[in-house]
Design a protein around this nucleic acid. Sequence first.
DNA 1: ACTTGCGATAACATTTTAGTTATCATTTTT
DNA 2: AAAAATGATAACTAAAATGTTATCGCAAGT
Lengths: 105, 105
Amino acid sequence: MENRKPVKTIDDYMNDETRVTPAERERINFEVSLIGKMIEAREERGLSQRKLAEISGIKQPAIARLESLKATPQIDTLFKVLYPLGYTLEIVPVKNNHVELELKA
Amino acid sequence: MENRKPVKTIDDYMNDETRVTPAERERINFEVSLIGKMIEAREERGLSQRKLAEISGIKQPAIARLESLKATPQIDTLFKVLYPLGYTLEIVPVKNNHVELELKA
DNA sequence: ACTTGCGATAACATTTTAGTTATCATTTTT
DNA sequence: AAAAATGATAACTAAAATGTTATCGCAAGT
């Protein structure tokens, strides 16, 4: 992180735009593990990015960008890639519940 | 569906661009039910779109667009909305397995 | 009747993803 | 060794999402 200013007060801390919030950390974690599973799913099937591109309709460069975390897919794109691999997405409750705390604040 | 040409052969059928493929149907289904659950989750908490906008950092017009299926969210946007509601996304195997058939083709 | 809060939407700017085509270095296969 | 296939990426275009600001009609509450 470049250009991080010296932090002296809580306000400094909260206003530090280079700071990664807990929620941000969670989001990054989420994306990394999600894409990780997507890659696993593809490799489980023994498919190359090019084959998957043919099957899914998403182009190989786009798949490469997703897998190397150079882009954040839209859910329809993710679905188009996951579905022919035999997977889909589901909404599930979060395990830890510090979320409650955030809501009360 | 407008401008649908008369279908006489399998080729006509396959090349009919106005045709909704099974995969397309699945995708639409997926998105509708996913967004449906997102709305439920918000209402469970008794939150308005405006409150959720404050909490999630996604603007109210964007949330409205998502809920009324006027836009297909990126996974980070969806996560930012779902997470403060206590939910996240997970990759899960598809129930029906006609997917296998598609892969063999 | 009036106010308040609601979801939806208009209009435009900004940001980002996906398509397209080509190519690269590297690994795998023959 | 040569050929083929792989993942990554460059460069550009097109398409789409999100931000921003404002406003609408509607329902609920006072």
